[in-house]
Nucleic acid binder design. Structure first.
Lengths: 166, 166
DNA sequence: AGGCTTCGGTTCAATAGTTGAACTGACTAG
DNA sequence: CTAGTCAGTTCAACTATTGAACCGAAGCCT
């Protein structure tokens, strides 16, 4: 019996979590993005058990969000870098960080991001159609082409078909 | 010793994960947002063990992202609803879902979100200063007021002080 | 009144994952 | 030829997850 896999759920959130939903994975990605790319640096920065880091890195490589690159030969040494999919995840992690800044960091943000335009304001999640910031209450949902009634969306399918419940 | 807590790390991403970083928690929040608010509905939709759901709901209530509300008396029955902090998390979950749509759902999105403006396009994460979509390479970082050198940011502090490494 | 059903959990034993310390192996520098 | 660096692996103790069974309060049916 393994920890339940989300890979087969017909939900993109579940599939995303299958790749980066483990306890340490988002922090590993943060560190790699910030420039800590070597095994030893990650161990030292995070205090993560070495066995677990090795397993997580393998999983992230398998999930194609990072890749293992040789940075020197003799002795052969490797480091980890974000792939394109991994870089595409950075804004999401930044948005989650901003949430933590808003709701969990009364003493101020520990890390401040600067956009190349000079702004240090938190990111905004906006509708690509109208440009307005997205607010939970402004959303509605319908079933897409990949929908199914199965574990993880056993009732969701019905809720969506019924025009939603919210 | 239990699973390492991220609560004391000086990183808002770690603090966010402390609340919603567990394996099932984001899916539970998704379901509650979509209208599945009762214990039994969540069990049926997700196939999550009842003991685990009870523990996760308690933790999410403790983390102030959901609240337990009585929806009928005699017999007393409760449901779970997003708090303001929980609703503020919805756009982030939507962004993570969109990432899964882009990179993990070759057959098309299982769930399609509609903004009240009519658009069904995925959300965009933009810089609140200039309005441009945020791309990993356009970011730089510096230490904020809450920074510290401790587990979770043992090396990060130095990297930020040195003007970054990226 | 007595029995069946619903809802929202709790309990439990088996299994799987996490932890931290110690160890390994390839290689280099001195 | 000894010590050191880096990137892991191994291992035993401990925790967490799983899924099935059980529980209790209350309403409904006859």
């Amino acid at each position: 019996m393994r920890q339940t896999s989300f890979a087969d759920m017909h939900c993109s959130l579940a599939r995303s979590l299958e790749v980066i939903g483990d306890w340490w994975s988002p922090l590993i990605l943060r560190d790699i993005h910030l420039g800590l790319r070597r095994f030893g640096e990650l161990v030292e920065d995070l205090g993560i058990p070495r066995a677990l880091l090795a397993a997580r890195l393998d999983a992230l490589v398998g999930g194609a969000v990072i890749e293992k690159v040789e940075y020197q030969q003799r002795p052969s040494r490797h480091e980890y870098r974000l792939t394109e999919a991994g870089r595409d995840l950075v804004p999401v992690l930044l948005a989650l960080t901003a949430w933590g800044d808003r709701w969990r960091s009364p003493d101020g943000a520990p890390i401040v991001a600067h956009h190349r335009c000079g702004a240090t304001t938190p990111p905004a999640i906006v509708c690509a159609g109208c440009g307005e910031p997205i607010v939970a209450g402004d959303l509605d949902y319908s079933a897409g082409p990949g929908a199914a009634t199965a574990r993880g969306t056993q009732l969701i399918a019905g809720v969506l078909a019924g025009g939603g419940r919210r």
